[in-house]
Simulated scan of single mutants.
Amino acid sequence: MKKTQISSNATIFLKFIVPSIFYLAFTFAIAGLITEGKYAGALSASFVLVIFGLFIYMAFVRLKHVSIDDEYVFISNYFKTIKISFSELESVSDLSFGGNYQPIFIHFKKRTDFGYSIIFINTCTRYFNFSEQSITKELSIKIKSIREGLPE
């Protein structure tokens, strides 16, 4: 059984590098404003840091590295990897914006070490190619066939 990676190679960059750059830049900006005595600007920048920080967390920090084989889904946060049977998956959904950034959500029947759902970025190779069957549809078909006891 060969494992196939279905999450983007950019996951590690988006999960660790982008948030680090964002938080460091805003932290240095706030520190600079405070040292110059511009407390109103520092307060505004702190507000932006909190608001956009929540967005960065929800969009990037929660990303997982995902691979599949014939029977299991392998999910990693780069520190820990778990193996989940396809029969334990509830559903798969996505937010398709076109282009390379396609967040995909996997929802589980019961709580896993990563919670009731995870998010990953698809390995989309072409921009705006709507004729290509998405991994979301493939996983949904696999879940449905397992649920109904049909061969794939």
Rank of each mutant, 00 (worst) to 15 (best):
I75M: 10
D94E: 05
E148I: 08
A59S: 14
K15R: 15
S76N: 14
G115F: 07
A10T: 05
Y78A: 04
S87F: 06
D70R: 13
S87T: 13
Y39S: 09
E71Q: 11
A40I: 12
L24M: 05
K109A: 12
N77K: 13
Y127F: 10
F97E: 07
K38E: 07
V92E: 02
F60A: 12
L54I: 09
Y78K: 10
F13E: 01
G149T: 10
Y23G: 01
Y39M: 13
R147C: 10
D69W: 07
A45H: 01
F120Q: 08
Y72N: 13
V66N: 04
F130R: 01
S76P: 14
R126E: 09
T27M: 08
L95A: 14
K137F: 02
F28H: 00
F26T: 02
L49K: 03
L43F: 05
I141D: 06
F52E: 11
L150Q: 14
I84C: 11
S91H: 09
V92M: 06
Y39H: 07
F16Y: 12
G115M: 07
F28M: 11
P151K: 09
I17V: 10
I68K: 06
I106V: 15
R126V: 12
A29W: 02
P103A: 09
V73H: 01
I75P: 05
S93W: 04
Y116L: 10
L49V: 04
F79I: 02
V66L: 11
P103K: 07
E138G: 05
I121V: 14
L14K: 08
I75D: 04
S140W: 00
Y39W: 06
A42H: 01
I17N: 04
S140P: 05
D70G: 04
A10K: 06
D94A: 11
A45K: 02
V50K: 00
I141R: 09
F79R: 15
G37Q: 05
L89T: 07
A40Q: 14
R62C: 13
C124W: 01
E132A: 11
V50C: 13
V61A: 12
S44A: 15
H107F: 07
T123D: 05
I51H: 00
Y72I: 10
K110P: 04
S46W: 01
D69A: 09
L89M: 11
P103N: 06
L33K: 02
E71M: 07
L49W: 02
S145N: 15
N122R: 11
I118G: 07
V50Y: 09
D113W: 06
F97S: 14
I106C: 12
S93T: 08
F79N: 14
L54Y: 07
D113A: 14
I12F: 12
E71N: 12
F26N: 01
I106H: 03
R147A: 15
S117W: 01
P19F: 03
K64V: 06
Y72A: 10
T81L: 11
S46V: 04
F16I: 08
I104L: 11
S145I: 03
K38L: 13
I135L: 05
E138I: 05
I17A: 10
F47A: 15
E71A: 08
S140C: 09
N9R: 12
F26Y: 06
S46T: 09
